[in-house]
Simulated scan of single mutants.
Amino acid sequence: MSDDGAPGRDETAQERADRLWTDMLQEVRVCQTGAQILFGFLIGVAFTPRFAALPDFDKNLYTATVILGAVATGALVAPVAFHRLLAGRGMKPELVHVAGHLIAAGLVTLALTIAAALLLLLRTATGSPTAAWIISSVVLLWFTTTWLVLPHVVLRRAAARRSATDDDGRQR
């Protein structure tokens, strides 16, 4: 066990922070790119000829979706700016902590952006507000299940397995 209590690794707190930071960068690259592309497409919608004909609800939904997309993009890019300001100051553990919260906020707002964009698209494409709400809600529930609930279930099961075995790997 390391100095900071991380099981299964022999690393200092600084080495752990370096490893976690590298992992976080790899993770955020995936969702950051998707958020930026989605945001870019959303910006262009207001400049299409059909936009002016949308009902007020859809225009307001679009506005909320663009704002969510901007917040998601900002939260997912923020760890990079944060790193630039703190680089070389020996604050990597603090950076990892704050970046984790920024990435979590970015993922939540990205899920909301996708669900809102899907709602807007389906309201327009299908002409059925009810179907659009149901499908968008199911997609948001899917994100919640796979992004939040499932990892917590896996974490709890792993903790239960660890508590059922002692330090030598024997059942208690």
Rank of each mutant, 00 (worst) to 15 (best):
R161T: 04
L118I: 06
G8K: 13
D18R: 14
A116K: 01
Q26W: 07
R9G: 01
R172W: 03
P151S: 10
V154A: 14
G40N: 05
G40H: 06
L95G: 01
L120Q: 05
T48D: 10
L141K: 07
A64G: 04
A117C: 09
Q36D: 10
V96W: 13
G69R: 00
L85T: 11
I43H: 05
D56E: 13
Q26N: 13
H97G: 00
T33F: 02
R16Y: 12
M24N: 12
Y62V: 07
L122F: 06
R19A: 04
I103G: 05
L95S: 01
L102G: 07
L140N: 03
L119R: 10
L112D: 06
T22F: 14
A164N: 02
A75G: 13
M1A: 06
D58I: 11
A159Q: 00
A164D: 00
R16W: 13
L120I: 02
T146W: 04
L140S: 04
A131Y: 08
A6V: 15
A159I: 00
A164P: 00
G40M: 02
T165Q: 09
I103Y: 12
I67Q: 08
I67W: 13
R16I: 15
F143G: 12
L141N: 05
L61V: 15
T130Q: 11
A72H: 06
P79Y: 00
D168K: 10
R170D: 02
D166I: 02
T12S: 15
V45A: 10
L148R: 00
L76V: 13
L86H: 07
S2Q: 14
T63G: 00
L141T: 12
Q14G: 03
A87R: 13
V71N: 03
A111P: 01
R123N: 11
R89N: 05
P7W: 12
G5T: 09
A53R: 09
A105D: 04
Q32T: 08
A117T: 07
L20N: 14
A131N: 09
G8I: 15
D10C: 09
T12P: 06
Q26C: 07
